[in-house]
Simulated assay, not measured.
Amino acid sequence: MSTDLTAAERAELDRLRRENQLLRVEKEMLLRIATEYALDARPSRTQLTHAARVDLPRTATR
Rank of each mutant, 00 (worst) to 15 (best):
M1C: 06
M1A: 03
M1I: 06
S2T: 14
S2H: 04
S2F: 03
T3L: 10
T3R: 09
T3N: 09
T3I: 01
T3K: 08
D4M: 08
D4C: 08
D4F: 09
L5R: 05
T6R: 01
T6G: 02
T6Q: 03
A7W: 05
A7R: 07
A7D: 14
A8H: 06
A8S: 10
E9T: 06
E9A: 12
R10H: 06
R10L: 14
A11H: 03
E12H: 06
E12C: 02
L13G: 01
D14H: 10
D14F: 07
R15E: 05
L16C: 08
L16A: 10
R17L: 14
R17T: 12
R18H: 02
R18V: 03
R18A: 05
E19M: 09
E19L: 13
E19G: 09
E19K: 12
Q21K: 15
L22Y: 04
L22N: 04
L22K: 05
L23G: 05
L23S: 08
R24S: 13
R24F: 09
R24P: 01
R24A: 09
V25Q: 15
E26H: 02
E28I: 02
E28F: 00
M29G: 04
M29P: 00
M29W: 08
L30I: 03
L30P: 00
L30V: 01
L31Y: 02
L31N: 11
R32L: 05
R32I: 00
R32F: 01
R32N: 10
I33E: 01
I33K: 01
I33D: 00
T35Q: 13
T35I: 05
T35M: 07
T35P: 00
T35F: 03
E36Y: 00
E36M: 00
E36G: 00
A38L: 08
A38S: 10
A38M: 07
L39Y: 05
L39H: 07
D40P: 00
D40N: 11
D40L: 11
D40R: 13
D40W: 06
P43K: 13
S44M: 10
S44L: 11
R45M: 11
T46G: 08
Q47I: 08
Q47E: 15
T49I: 13
H50S: 12
H50W: 13
H50L: 15
A51S: 15
A51C: 05
A51E: 15
A52W: 07
R53P: 00
V54L: 15
V54I: 15
V54M: 14
V54C: 12
D55A: 13
D55L: 14
D55I: 09
D55F: 07
D55P: 05
L56R: 15
P57C: 11
P57H: 12
P57R: 14
R58C: 12
R58Y: 10
R58L: 15
T59D: 07
T59K: 02
A60K: 10
R62M: 08
R62P: 07
